[in-house]
């Protein structure tokens, strides 16, 4: 076993070990029970309710819950848009950065309100500290908390019987932020600061060259971008957001300086989505259901990590043909190291790529654009599966549960019985809503890509013509159309066309999935509980795990196979034929 696999194995063990304690804690929080943090956070929670005049016991129907969610997110969008457009007039802008253009402000506001964190802009040269903190970091918290709230309502659909209501959005949002995201982020931010991640309001500094003559007299030194990065990096990982404080994201030494910071950031990416599976099991009073979902997610994740590792370790035959040495030696880890941080090598780059694309986290520690065609394709495909392999905080699990509903429906058709899941009959309405959740993202991705590769405005900023350029556009829409946020990055995306089109993709991918999810919750909550009978499909068994995996893979594979054949698969064939 290579050191990289030992590292990955340790990572998975710690991740799974955290699922139960954190999942139990989150279940207590979402069920409104008293937790050990109550003496500290309880007064703050009650103050929030008093100031906002909210009665947390006021139960909401699903349309009311959805309207509250949409209004709150609209306010977040407007706040981020305004901060970007007015930043030149606002404090905490020591670099005196100008207002962001309207189309870029639209894209970024949509990106952070929807928990996507697609970044069409360059942070260091575009956004002041106030915009980064009051705009982006705040949205990192509340967009993730919105996902947790929608998931909590979704689970109540299964756990409640003959109920017209699914909870209170404001209470779920507040408790998710204060009890789950805030304490974890605070702890992680402090550890990151101890490791060397910067946290300062000081203006950028200029460092003198070690060898001035090598850079000419014109360059007085190198400008080092600074800022309150640690507080943003912590929640960007925990909230499966991913938007870097610096442009090179988690490859930057001020964001990710040490092996410990790297491990903890990786853990932060998947820890909440993983633990939410256990939370689900607790809330439906059958933890086996949560473990089954977690098993399905983990099996696909491990297969994809292995696939990316194998693709990158095999290197690029075209480079070998040109005489480049890609073999493992004392001075080189071997394989395809183009676009990878030497500190991380292939193992941690592959793990990071798989974890982030599985989890709708847009952060990167290597250039996905420089991965081998198959390595990059696996990362892209993980996104295209609908961000349900762990997925975004909250959104990943309700997406996966939509797949589970489809899986039990398919199984019900096979044996000729009315499908049921967790004691609730799955009928036409639930299937229509689940189908919308599963089919809308592929439509957004494929339609957006198709338009961009024929429209002159879309073609103008594809800087890699040919199959790789197509892959870049497909990746961009896959990322936006599934609220991931990472990029192949070779595409010039900060244009009115891409800012607009990707902004629309992010909006529909978030809210046109959350609304049907809440509709399912409302419909299921109103139903009576059906006792399990001889014809009930057990949904905690290895058989169901395999059925769920097959459902996810068939939808993902069949939908995107033609598009992937036009991009990364052709590029792979060209590469092994030494043609690229």
């Amino acid at each position: 076993m290579t050191p990289a696999w030992i590292e990955i194995g340790l990572y998975l063990v710690v991740l799974i070990a955290c699922a139960r304690p954190l999942g139990q804690f989150m279940a207590d929080v979402l069920e409104g029970e008293r937790t050990w943090l109550a003496p500290l956070i309880g007064p703050l929670e009650r103050a929030c309710y008093r100031i906002a005049r909210i009665n947390p016991a006021d139960e909401m129907t699903w349309p009311r819950y959805a309207i509250a969610m949409l209004l709150f997110n609209a306010a977040g969008f407007l706040a981020v848009y305004a901060l970007q457009r007015l930043q030149a007039l606002l404090p905490l802008n020591p670099q005196h950065l100008a207002a962001v253009s309207p189309d870029s402000a639209f894209n970024t506001a949509m990106s952070f309100a929807t928990n996507t964190n697609w970044q069409g802009y360059v942070p260091e040269t575009s956004l002041g500290y106030l915009t980064q903190m009051a705009g982006l970091t705040v949205q990192n918290f509340v967009s993730a908390a919105t996902g947790i709230a929608v998931l909590a309502a979704f689970i109540r659909g299964f756990s409640r019987r003959s109920s017209a209501t699914i909870g209170n959005f404001w209470a779920d949002l507040t408790r998710g932020t204060l009890y789950i995201l805030l304490p974890l982020s605070l702890a992680l931010a402090l550890i990151l600061v101890s490791q060397g991640v910067v946290q300062t309001f000081h203006p950028y500094r200029t460092a003198a060259w070690v060898e001035p003559s090598a850079h000419g007299a014109a360059a007085a030194g190198q400008t080092l971008a600074l800022g309150p990065a640690a507080s943003q990096v912590a929640i960007k990982q925990l909230g499966t957001n991913g938007g870097g404080f610096f442009n090179v994201n988690s490859a930057h030494p001020f964001e990710n300086p040490t092996p410990l910071s790297c491990f903890l950031e990786l853990l932060a990416i998947l820890i909440i989505p993983g633990a939410l599976c256990y939370t689900f099991g607790r809330m439906v009073r059958d933890t086996r259901q949560g473990w089954a979902i977690l098993a399905a997610m983990t099996l696909i994740l491990v297969a994809c990590i292995a696939g990316i590792m194998a693709a990158e370790e095999s290197g690029n035959p075209a480079l070998a043909h040109a005489g480049a040495d890609q073999s493992t030696s004392a001075g080189s880890p071997g394989g395809n190291m183009e676009g990878k941080e030497a500190r991380f090598g292939i193992g941690l780059s592959a793990l990071w790529a798989a974890a982030t694309t599985a989890a709708s986290n847009g952060s990167v520690d290597a250039m996905h654009d420089s991965f081998t065609p198959l390595g990059g394709m696996i990362a892209m495909w993980l996104i295209q599966l609908g961000e349900v392999i762990y997925g975004g905080v909250g959104s990943g699990l309700y997406g996966m549960l939509a797949f589970a509903i489809i899986a039990v429906f398919v199984a019900g058709l096979m044996v000729g019985r009315t499908p049921e899941y967790l004691g609730k009959k799955i009928e036409a309405h639930e299937m229509k809503m689940a189908s919308l959740i599963v089919l809308l993202p592929p439509f957004i991705v494929l339609a957006g890509t198709a338009c961009s590769v024929v429209a002159p405005s879309g073609l103008r900023t594809i800087f890699n013509p040919g199959v790789h350029g197509f892959s870049e556009v497909l990746y961009a829409f896959s990322s936006a159309g599934n609220n991931n946020g990472s990029a192949f990055a070779g595409l010039g995306a900060n244009t009115p066309w891409y800012n607009g089109a990707l902004g629309l993709a992010m909006f529909f991918a978030r809210y046109w999935l959350a609304v049907p999810a809440l509709a399912i919750a409302g419909s299921l909550a109103a139903k009576k509980h059906v006792p399990a009978g001889a014809g009930t499909l057990p949904t905690h068994t290895p058989l169901f795990v395999l059925l769920l995996i097959a459902t996810v893979l068939v939808v993902g594979a069949l939908t995107f196979a033609p598009a992937l054949a036009l991009g990364p698969l052709v590029e792979h064939l060209m590469m092994i034929g030494h043609g690229s």
Binding site: F106, K432, G500, P516
Partner: peptide
């Protein structure tokens, strides 16, 4: 240009409120 982009956002949110109504009507329950 701000009005254009904010207008686009406004339309997006409005049609999503419409989606809630559509899903509600298709629910089949009172």
């Amino acid at each position: 240009m701000d009005f254009v982009w904010l207008g686009v956002a406004g339309i997006l949110w409005l049609i999503t409120f419409g989606l809630i109504r559509v899903c509600e009507r298709r629910d089949g329950r009172p």
